[in-house]
Nucleic acid binder design. Structure first.
Lengths: 257, 257
DNA sequence: CGACATGTTGAAGCGGTTCAAGTAGGGTGG
DNA sequence: CCACCCTACTTGAACCGCTTCAACATGTCG
């Protein structure tokens, strides 16, 4: 579709080169020429409408997706038909990396709002990674970061009481928005209370009560989906306080260390 | 051990080519010649003693480690000095992939028993991956599998009640042992009850009680670290039963789907 | 507007934690 | 070899954080 010199004006803004997420997303750190190579394999999709699935559990794995705008939730459906949310994804983030191993998607991805994505055919990406060391490194790095973040979520859900989880969740969103150039202290939740509760392993009512508490304590201002962070320090305090639990200073296995 | 041509006798068994974990580990699917190339960059360490750290949180990232025998736990220490266990690792599995992104380890890895590892210098691995498509693909695949497994853990901890978590944990171990050619129904826990509790987000006492229950119900035979699985079907049933929770059939965001 | 989904608030119940006490291995030194 | 100690593990009972159930409030969309 790309012409060259003369015509592709309207086209341009859809390319990595002119994308504001360049520094976050897969092409980070690539030289100009290499960027073009990556750009050439990326396909753009029409926007995914709110509630629509980008891919579903069990779909064969064809591509990694980078989000340009909007947001997704990823989730699995278990035997009883219950949904378990795995994560939320925002602009500049990659989705689908969990599917490489099994060669099929193990989560579904549903748009939380009208969302646009770049589709990166995976076989082409592997090929190109053989050629561009920078691309390979950065892709591995993004997968590594995904591992890191999943492990953080695990620790949060395993160790923090309800308040801590919610505080942690808000801080995490705040930081991700900030990284993308949005305000750190004012933002909108694109996901429902139900989705938040589900991911954090809590009941919806608990989320509701905690948000109300935070508001009463002057930590947050909450109005439906609109969140304003008033006291980030306090949020951090709440999110890092373990219940009590001396539990494991671990003199156990460490008769050497 | 195998006597080969003439020379490298004692050496041979330490190489990928003759390693029984070949089909699980990083070199999976490589051709003979390529295998030698990978083999040439791998350094072998002397065994890590029980309780000794292979690496610690904050250490600069130099290498990925493949386990040859024994087991590790990985964990972080939070602000209050409490340990949070991230995972357990067994022969044929890779550790340290979470460190690529930050270029430093975000977990510590401690040997649960005397353990031997192969050290794979990461810069050499990236270089070699540029050359060998099969290696690149398989490495990405192993990272993808790590993501998958971390997400499974998250869902388990977020959704299952205590019994389900323990059942799930046992099944997971059983499957991993089986894949490695050990018995699926009889094995030893190299980690303490404390470590199990920690990873599952439960109290030690709860683990103890649940194991006792399982034994009384005839699902397991438990004797200290020795576990025998008597009724795997029942274990699966327990591990997949959500508490009650219709919670999220999600007619919500899906006014399209 | 009416209908349905989402979110909030209150009250009761329970699963799992916490606290407390006791048992049992495994290693060490006498 | 046994006595001892330390740690891991087990068991019981009280407590509490979160869930569940129920009712209501508020948006949102056909």
């Amino acid at each position: 579709m790309s012409k060259d010199r003369v015509v592709k004006l309207a086209d341009v803004r859809a390319h990595c080169k002119s994308c504001s997420l360049l520094q976050l997303c897969l092409p980070m750190g690539l030289a100009e020429g290499d960027l073009d190579k990556l750009d050439s394999i990326i396909q753009r999709r029409k926007p995914v409408q709110k509630g629509e699935d980008l891919y579903q559990m069990g779909d064969s794995f064809k591509a990694i997706y980078a989000i340009r705008s909007g947001s997704f939730k990823t989730f699995t459906i278990n035997a009883e038909g219950h949904e378990q949310i795995v994560g939320f994804y925002f602009p500049g983030e990659l989705m689908g990396m969990d599917a490489i191993s099994a060669n099929q998607h193990i989560c579904s991805a549903k748009a939380l709002e009208t969302t646009s994505v770049c589709e990166i055919p995976y076989d082409r990406l592997e090929e190109l990674s053989m050629e561009l060391a920078g691309l390979q490194h950065h892709f591995l790095s993004m997968m590594s970061k995904e591992i890191q973040q999943d492990q953080c979520k695990l620790m949060m859900v395993a160790k923090l009481p309800a308040e801590g989880r919610v505080a942690n969740f808000i801080i995490n969103l705040s930081e991700r928005f900030q990284t993308r150039g949005y305000a750190a202290n004012v933002f909108n939740l694109s996901m429902s209370r139900n989705d938040i509760a589900n991911m954090l392993g809590l009941a919806v009512e608990t989320i509701s009560r905690i948000l109300t508490n935070f508001q009463e304590q002057g930590v947050l201002k909450v109005e439906r989906k609109h969140i304003e962070v008033l006291d980030i320090q306090q949020l951090r305090r709440i999110s890092s306080q373990c219940p009590s639990v001396a539990q494991n200073t671990d003199k156990s296995t460490s008769h050497t260390a």
